[in-house]
């Protein structure tokens, strides 16, 4: 029983950064912008969060530092793609390379230093519930934030006027412009939100998942988050399914490797990717729903004629 709880808790920790980065990118893509720089924003978030926490001695200020760093990098992306109308795919890829390079330079002096781990916050009463209390209500603040984010984004996108406006911009930028909706302004805000989320996801890696700084510590999680958004057909609740499935198989295969079932370890390492893809492909079989949820102007440059 205790072992099961321990394993599930690690699953939550592994899934949280993916969930946060993916939910941020989901908002960006719903507004019609494709930011492939998630990996770069995440890794910058991780190193800046670690450095800020070390300098101030407070991991919570570290979190804020990570968020700010991710948002700053996304602002650069927004200026390039939205104001200067550069190609979104190329700019996003460049952003990833920039983030990886910059994080190496910033983090040079922090390699090998033990980090400050975010402490779990026990929620009174709820954490006393057997089993679930241990899994869900004795976590650090970023895990709680991740759930708040999914709930908040779902509510925002589908229950508020601002969310409707954002979705309309992603569906048809020209129609939105004709109706007098400020396409560029909305996209700026969405991109900044996505950057902040990626920064937060990075902070979770260097302050909670493995409290230390290792170069390139995101290890492709930004790309997984991007894939999750597409496979989840741009729906927030499905992102949870994808992120947790990925986390679960990641942890599961680690234990399987330790037990040594005679399965090649390379295959086991590939398993999380494979399993996530298969499951998300299966749940997005309904082509009509997928089509309705796909932001039709995704990645298209927008230049209003005036």
């Amino acid at each position: 029983m205790d072992l099961a709880v321990a394993i599930i808790v690690t699953v939550v920790t592994a899934a949280t950064p993916l969930l946060i980065a993916a939910i941020g990118e989901l908002v960006v893509e719903r507004s019609g912008v494709l930011n492939l720089g998630v990996e770069g924003m995440m890794v910058i978030g991780a190193v800046v969060a670690f450095a800020t926490a070390q300098t101030t001695g407070d991991p919570y200020i570290g979190i804020l530092g990570g968020i700010a760093a991710g948002a700053f990098l996304s602002l650069l992306f927004a200026v390039l793609t939205l104001t200067l109308v550069t190609n979104q795919v190329a700019t996003g890829l460049a952003l990833t390379l920039l983030g990886l390079g910059m994080s190496g330079a910033i983090g040079e002096g922090y390699v090998g230093i033990p980090g400050i781990k975010l402490q779990a916050i026990e929620i009174p009463l709820l954490s006393d519930i057997p089993f679930f209390g241990d899994i869900l209500f004795k976590q650090d603040i970023i895990v709680y934030l991740s759930f708040a984010l999914v709930a908040g984004v779902t509510w925002f996108l589908f229950r508020t006027r601002a969310g409707l406006t954002l979705r309309s911009v992603g569906d048809s930028q020209n129609s939105a412009h004709t109706l007098g909706i400020g396409v560029i302004r909305i996209r700026y805000l969405a991109v900044l939100f996505g950057g902040a989320c990626a920064g937060l996801a990075g902070a979770q890696l260097s302050l909670a998942y493995t409290p230390q700084w290792v170069e390139n510590m995101t290890a492709g999680r930004g790309w997984i988050a991007l894939a999750l958004v597409v496979f989840a057909s741009w729906r927030p609740l499905r992102v949870i399914v994808g992120a947790y499935l990925f986390g679960a198989v990641t942890i599961g295969q680690l234990h399987a490797q330790a037990l040594g079932f005679g399965i090649p370890s390379q295959f086991l390492s590939a398993l999380p990717y494979l399993a996530t893809m298969i499951v998300l492909v299966i749940i997005s079989r309904d082509r009509r729903l997928t089509l309705v949820n796909t932001p039709a102007s995704l990645g298209q440059p927008f230049v209003p004629d005036r």
Binding site: R167, S168, D171, S172, S175, L291, T294, P295, A296
Partner: peptide
């Protein structure tokens, strides 16, 4: 040319 949003 319709100024509608198809997905909405």
């Amino acid at each position: 040319h319709f100024s509608l949003f198809e997905a909405l």
